[in-house]
């Protein structure tokens, strides 16, 4: 299949650590919106990904994890969101094959970090209730994507977008930005550094991981759905 996925699944030169679940104790939350479940879970996967703070979409016992690194200012991420993402959700997330973990990877400019911090604040705000609202916000921001550094990803404009997303409290998000912005930014920086350990140098980027067999593969860029479909099957059967 993919060069990257083949390499990782075969373990050729890229060997990840053994499975390790640090914590299974956090309260999972989920909700239903367009039949897509979202969860919050505090644990570290066998691949070393700390799930805490990241939206998880899909069944928690889905056999394949897909870790998705993105930047809201990245046009290639928007392309993925428009083309392959809906098909992955329809054909792999909803049927219970994949659980999709959203990880921020702001690298294009300061506004990318602004959007990334707001993403985490939105998740904090909705995860205890109608968690699937996160996807509405996530999609609304990508839909509103403008030219890099044109101001579309300023805090003010993003809060305006937030206010128009039903079920997301823009005031609570703003409060989160003020009171937890620095702490969230530090956590995102850690995620960015960790991404480099997986050889991620641009976005969108994906690591597919079979938790049971501890096999993984990587896809980079807005590739066609068929490539994801094939990669998911390959990792699932690895």
């Amino acid at each position: 299949m993919l060069g990257g996925i083949g390499t990782l699944v075969a373990g050729g030169g890229v060997v990840y650590g053994a499975s390790r679940l640090d914590s299974d104790s956090a309260e999972p939350t989920s909700s239903e919106s367009n039949r897509t479940q979202f969860h919050s879970r505090s644990e570290t996967t066998g691949l070393g990904i700390e799930l805490g703070g990241h939206p998880i979409m899909g069944e928690m016992d889905a056999p394949v994890d897909v870790y998705y690194w993105s930047d809201y200012q990245c046009p290639f991420c928007r392309r993925f969101e428009a083309d392959s993402f809906p098909k992955i959700v329809e054909n792999h997330v909803r049927p219970g094959t994949v659980r999709f973990v959203f990880i921020q990877y702001p690298y294009l400019s300061e506004s990318s970090m602004t959007a990334a911090v707001m993403d985490r604040c939105v998740w904090r705000q909705v995860r205890g209730g109608d968690a699937a609202r996160y996807l509405d916000w996530h999609s609304a921001v990508f839909d509103a994507q403008g030219e890099k550094n044109s101001g579309w990803a300023s805090a003010e404009n993003l809060l305006e977008i937030t206010a128009n997303v039903e079920g997301v409290d823009a005031d609570a998000v703003e409060t989160c930005l003020d009171s937890h912005g620095t702490e969230i930014e530090a956590a995102i920086e850690t995620d960015v550094q960790q991404a480099s350990q997986y050889g991620i140098r641009g976005s969108p980027a994906f690591v597919l991981y079979n938790r049971e067999s501890d096999k993984a593969g990587k896809i980079v860029g807005a590739q066609p759905y068929e490539r994801f479909d094939s990669a998911i099957s390959k990792v699932k059967n690895a």
Partner: peptide
């Protein structure tokens, strides 16, 4: 401009 993406696509 995105070598890893290009490599993955073309090697497949």
């Amino acid at each position: 401009s995105f070598p890893t993406y290009s490599m993955q696509m073309l090697t497949t």
